[in-house]
Structures are given as C-alpha cells and as structure tokens.
Amino acid sequence: MGPARRSPPTAGAAGEEAAAVARRRQGMLLASPGALYLLIFFVVPLGLITVYSFATRTSTGRTALSGWNVESYRAIGDDIIVGIIGRSAWLATLTTVLCVVVGYPFAYYIATRPRHVRAVLLVLVMIPFWTNALVRVFAIRFLLGSNGPASALSESLGFGTFRILFTPTAVTIGMVYSFLTFMVLPLYVALERMDWSLTEAARDLYASGAKAFWKVTLPLTRSGIVAGCVLVFVPSFGSYVVPDILGGAKTLLIGSYIARQFRDARNWPLGAALSVLLIVAMLVAVALNQRSGSGAEDGGRPRGRRRGPGRGVAEPATAEAS
C-alpha cells in the first residue's frame, strides 16, 4: 500500500511532508468504515449505558431520561447487592485458583512431551477451547442432573442419588469446566517457551527438583499464570450462562442479576450502573495484567516491527538499521 508519490523530482522536506499527508489520509480512509461501525455500535451504546445509570426508574418500570441522580450507584451498597458482588468475586476467585491448580501440572505435562505428541495433545486441548460453550455447560447440567447419568451411576453403585445441581459447587464445577482451557493455553505457551537449560543450571547449582521448580520454572512462567488468571477471572466474574443453568436461587451472581434488572425487574438504571461497575472492574484487571506482563517473555513481545517507509518519521530508533 505504497503512497502514490507524484511529487516534483526535487528532493526536499516538502515532498516528504506531502507523502506523509497522503499516507495519513489513506490510513484514515482504510480505518474509517470499521471505526465508524465501532463508534455507532459500541462506543455510543457504551455512552448510553453510562447515561442510563444516572437516569430515573419510574414507578411503571420505565426509564425516564431526566432527574439525573446517583441513586443506582447508591443502591449498589445495599446488603443484597453487596452480597451478590461478593459471591461473584468469591466464586470467580475460587474458579481461578482451581484452574491454576488443575491447569499448571496439566500444561506442564503437555509442554514437556516430544514435539509430535505435544501437537496431538494441543489439539485435544483446542477442541474443548473452541467448542460451543453453551453445549459444554449443558453437558455438565445433563451429567449432574438429579436424574442424570452420574446420579444413576452412583445410585446403581449403592451411594444413592446426589443433589449437586443448583448449588455453588455445581456452578464452580461448571465454571472450571468452561474456563479451564483459557488457563491452560497461556500456561502452555509460557512453559513451551521455557528455556529448560535454566532449570538444569539450577540443578547443577545444587537446587533440588522442587527448589528448581519454585525458584526457576515458576517465576519464569509467571506471565503465563497472570495472563491465564485474567482470562479466567474476567469471564467467570461476569458469567451469566453458567450460573443460570447450573446455579439456583442461592447462587445469584452479578451477571444474572444485571440480566434480571433488564428483564423481569425492569430496573434499567440499576442494571446499567452495575454494568458500568463490571466494565470498570474488568478494565482494571486487564490493565493490571498488562502491566505485570510487560517485560516478561510473552507480555513483552517487542512491538517494534520491521522498518518501512513512512513509519520512520515516528520511530527513529528503528528506522536506521545499517
């Protein structure tokens, strides 16, 4: 996509400037359809939900865009809502921790297999990763149902039926099941890139196997752990489908609570305020991840790309590579 340079044949800053202006225009033209789409269907909705969070709910359940107030934000302080947020945070944390504990040895095993075995195992991880999430939650629902196969099996073995569905345990199992691969993949990437001679060096320097792991392997794969934690925590905190299918009334989480405000409860301003809160929380989590990830091996992937005309103006350091 080179700029059409038809400037006069004398070299000079003016010609260079004209080429830069032409390139800027070309870039803007290329970006504008997508940018416009995002503006209308993402930025404006984002603004609207923020506006709604300061609106008034009328007695009929409609939303009046007047009488701006912070009632909805104040309502977040109610015991019920604080309880819901706390429960969501707790379940999301529990899910994240379980995913690390389950996923780390799993990823370690895969990453240390010979190359051809590793490729096959990775495909086996990718399949659930890409598989329809709803179907996977349904599979858990089906398996754990009080008249489902698991229960039937336990009954036939003489342990009696079990009632696990609609409990926080079921929700946790469902979330770990849903998001485990989100943890395994970044862990795998970090472990696969691991320079094992470093562990060997640690062993050579009198570290035991366990010490070498804690002092060398684990710190070097930290960026993978952090990335995985964010990838698991963020969707579990805002999860709506999993608790809705596997949880009961006692496991009302913030995602379902927001949905409820826009449906049966018809309190859009409160739902909007909770959404804003959720978005801010997610952005903070992601920003924290990016900060801790930079400098580490995969977070700090160099952004400077190969040199090319036009970018040199803004990136002098990479421009000259004689």
Partner: peptide, 27 residues
C-alpha cells in the same frame, strides 16, 4: 543502508539531490 535505500527510492531524502545516469530521481 539508508543511503542505499534512498538510491532505491525506499526512503526519500530530506535534503539534497540524487541522480541516476543524469536523471533526477530524488522523489
């Protein structure tokens, strides 16, 4: 390398003139 790239036309000189067999090609 920058000098070579200016002869090739991959970078444009900020100042000065560049001729190839007598023909101005700076820009």
């Amino acid at each position: 390398t920058t000098t070579l790239r200016m002869i090739a036309g991959l970078d444009l000189p900020t100042e000065g003139r560049l001729r190839i067999f007598g023909e101005e090609v700076g820009m």
